[in-house]
Design a protein around this nucleic acid. Structure first.
Lengths: 123, 123
DNA sequence: CCTTAAATAGTAATGATTACTATTACCGTT
DNA sequence: AACGGTAATAGTAATCATTACTATTTAAGG
């Protein structure tokens, strides 16, 4: 993998963001530094970086792809008022899923939990 | 809401299916009964029927919309070998999410859990 | 400073879903 | 049984996120 100014900028944007940006959000932020950067380049590099485990790509049900600097396993909560995506770092969830795996005699290797409601700010 | 042959056929197909069909799957099955039924009609009626609570529309992360005759809250497991979508009727999950709601002082109103792995048949 | 392949910009294609519009058909009223 | 209003439909176009394609640019090793 060669160096590229584009990839550096894209990585820095994700590492500096805490709002779980979409590819389009990264694209718009990147354009402020490289005015003619291509959306395809943003997608390719976001996918590349997440394949390498440097950033994390995730999806919330009913939503589009998002990217996160936090690579460790965690879930996401979406506030229906402000639209914010909030990290839920919940280890007990993974324990719970393991139990479920035994009960249902299906071998659960991976899970995605999307939570919806109202965040503490908006209540 | 008026009667329509199309809606009757579409509803019957979902009620007779246990494979969590997509709109396109319902469309292809419906065409065997009404050869010129429109895909738009299928989408509109599937959405209409799920708004009425007669069927259930759901999504698995990374997958497209699916429809289910089972309307009560439950989660879904996807086998990566055979591709089957299997219902997980797990009450304890909902209790767990309620607890999580308290811990995180976010008001969790709804959740979607997608489980991935290998089913009992394919192991 | 050359060369070569990786990376890019710009554009086209894809696929699921929704929107649009002229036509059809359900159904209550005569 | 015919009529008229309007909901529902068929067929097609539009949308939007994402991927694919291709000619051009650029990193970096010799």
């Amino acid at each position: 993998m060669r160096n590229s100014k584009q990839r550096d900028v894209i990585l820095k944007i994700v590492l500096d963001s805490s709002d779980h940006p979409t590819a389009d959000m990264v694209y718009n932020r990147a354009r402020k530094e490289i005015d003619n950067i291509s959306l395809g380049t943003v997608y390719r590099n976001l996918n590349l970086l997440s394949e390498q485990g440097i950033i994390k790509k995730f999806k919330i049900v009913g939503d589009i792809e998002r990217f996160d600097k936090t690579v460790i396993t965690h879930s996401h909560f979406v506030c229906k008022e402000c639209g914010k995506v909030i990290d839920i770092m919940e280890d007990s969830l993974s324990d719970f899923i393991k139990e479920l795996s035994n009960k249902t005699n299906a071998n659960i290797e991976r899970y995605e939990v999307s939570l919806f409601g109202t965040c503490s700010h908006c209540q």
